[in-house]
Design a protein around this nucleic acid. Structure first.
Lengths: 341, 341
DNA sequence: TTGTAAGCGTTATCAA
DNA sequence: TTGATAACGCTTACAA
């Protein structure tokens, strides 16, 4: 592989000049520039990025950490992130964090060793040990997308909707439709628990405000996946009494729930209403189309990236949350409850 | 930030010894090792990864390139990739390639400059200019997951199912059920065209073998997304005559099709049968559950990663395809056609 | 078993 | 405007 030396030799200049040609072309005379350009072309030289990273102490890479790829919702966020990144010369890389110890270390190592200039953490519980996650530095700047990971970190920079309020409004929608027996399905067992906790709170807020009774058997913990939604739904159907409405902490669970409810011979929304959260692409074509809470995903991505870049450049506060508005999307899966026989 | 020098000074040894302690601990005496360990603990030292990458000429990072994250099918592949990577010390990073010029350059730059030790390209059309994509080197080893990108590259290392045969079998299933009027929906316009081409071929193979006539108006090009499936379906419904069965080049299109067909008042599979391709997680809970072709995604991921590592280590041929078996998954969306009135 | 020192390819400083 | 050279932090001959 050719190095800057080869180019310099061929062009009959010093390596400093080649470097200048590349990084500060205005500092080199036209005639010299042409020689260097020719030599670069002849040698097929391209700078060793590893050496540059080392020398510059940065990689021009931004990492977006997601619990797992393949979650349709994240694609929307990425769209916003990319749009901002496009002009900046930063590469966007995605890393799956999951919740396993291995990935845990994996992630810490990658991040703490500055192989990346900044991080956007999307709805994933701290993939490194919490003590690491402070503003003291030692790691590149981090933005929390979607939600604060834990109360202690509430002043960490964050871009998100008001999950608690959104969940409350979704629940209130059901209540206004006339439901009084409402179940909630969430994902405490998973790494995303920090994310669903405010949603759970919002659900309780609405119940309390309406004076509705909270029923433990209609409060089901599961995984935030289709599978998790299915399992949780079967558990719900096994309860002594059946609610007239079901609020799922995310759309994937809701998709699983829809399926199991229909399997059990129930009609939606006639026999039971279902509401999800996130508004991922599949929700619109669900059967029936899913009523849900839409997060302005692209905007979250955009603003997360912008804020991260600003922090990297040292001209933005590295704390505090940007809260952006959510939106209730009414489709067909929620309706007034059937009259009691 | 502390460097190896600080540790050496504190431990009263040379930097070489510290380095050895870290990389070849068996070469340092126990007593020295303890001193070094202590100094490392005291300084909170961790090696500068950028310097290591530079010095070693590698990053211990593997990049998986996908057209876009958020495609549920890829999560399964990643699972296999990760399982293999877990033991190796390699970091798995994901990059979205899309088909835009910008990402194009972006990707080339990242890849060609060895910021990554190896690449797994998943069902994405060459994200760099084709000339680059040869075995001549200059770039890290590449594995094509899922499909060859173009005929010229057919001897590039590849791990995939026999897409053409699978598509033929799926079509034959419809024919055996009694269908003679079969539409096909695929994605030539997208960056994934190389992927769906063999599926298209397989479809034609089955038609030809059964002596069925190919009808241009039932052969619809679209995007391989839900949206694309919906648009294509509306186009199909506008045709003069309606087929009794529809084969979609991937499950996402099929999900969109299912929705539009139901919107149009058709019942599936009574009025029209639908078959997809990929068997992503959502397909099982579609309404009706989608009959489709399952790719052994985890295995594809596993074998891609294994093969890549073998190539990196220099003990595997960097050409040829591993073809692994696919499987037809019969669910509810395909059935015999209704009797002609 | 340990230390000395060269060298990886850049960029940046300083002098010419 | 250009060139010589130091420096970044690490690994690894080679010598002791």
């Amino acid at each position: 592989m050719n190095s800057i030396k080869d180019v310099a030799r061929l062009a009959g200049v010093s390596i400093a000049t080649v470097s200048r040609y590349l990084n500060n072309p205005e500092q080199v005379r036209d005639k010299t520039a042409r020689k260097v350009a020719q030599a670069i072309a002849d040698t097929g030289y391209s700078p060793n990025r590893l050496a540059q990273n080392f020398r510059n102490g940065r990689t021009k890479q931004i990492m977006v950490a997601v619990p797992s790829i393949g979650i349709p919702f994240f694609e929307l966020i990425m769209r916003g992130v990319r749009r901002v990144a496009a002009e900046t010369g930063y590469h966007i890389l995605v890393m799956e964090t999951h919740s396993h110890t291995h990935d845990f270390d994996d992630f810490s190592r990658l991040v703490m060793t500055k192989q990346t200039d900044g991080i956007i953490l999307l709805s994933t519980l701290s993939p490194f040990e919490e003590p690491i996650l402070d503003t003291e530095g030692g790691h590149p700047p981090i933005i929390l997308g979607l939600e604060n990971l834990s109360p202690e970190l509430s002043n960490f920079p964050c871009v998100r909707i008001d999950n608690r309020l959104a969940a409350r409004e979704a629940t209130e929608l059901l209540i206004h439709l006339g439901h009084r027996d409402i179940a909630f399905m969430y994902g405490k067992q998973t790494a995303n628990s920090a994310l669903t906790q405010p949603r759970e709170q919002g659900f309780r807020d609405a119940l309390d405000a309406a004076g509705l009774r909270f029923r433990a058997e209609w409060f089901i913990d599961g995984k935030l996946t289709i599978r998790g939604g299915r399992d949780a739904t079967r558990q719900l159907l096994a309860a002594k009494t059946r609610p007239t409405a079901l609020f799922c902490a995310n759309d994937e669970m809701a998709m699983g729930a829809l399926h199991e409810l229909k399997q059990a011979g129930l009609s939606i929304p006639r026999d039971i209403s279902v509401i999800g959260f996130d508004d991922m692409q599949f929700s619109e074509v669900a059967d029936p189309p899913l009523t849900t809470v839409a997060q302005p995903a692209e905007e979250i991505g955009e603003r997360s990236m912008k804020r991260l870049l600003a922090i990297i450049d040292g001209n933005a506060p590295a704390k505090g949350a940007d809260v952006i508005p959510h939106r209730l999307v009414m489709r067909k899966s929620a309706a007034p409850p059937a009259q009691k026989p």
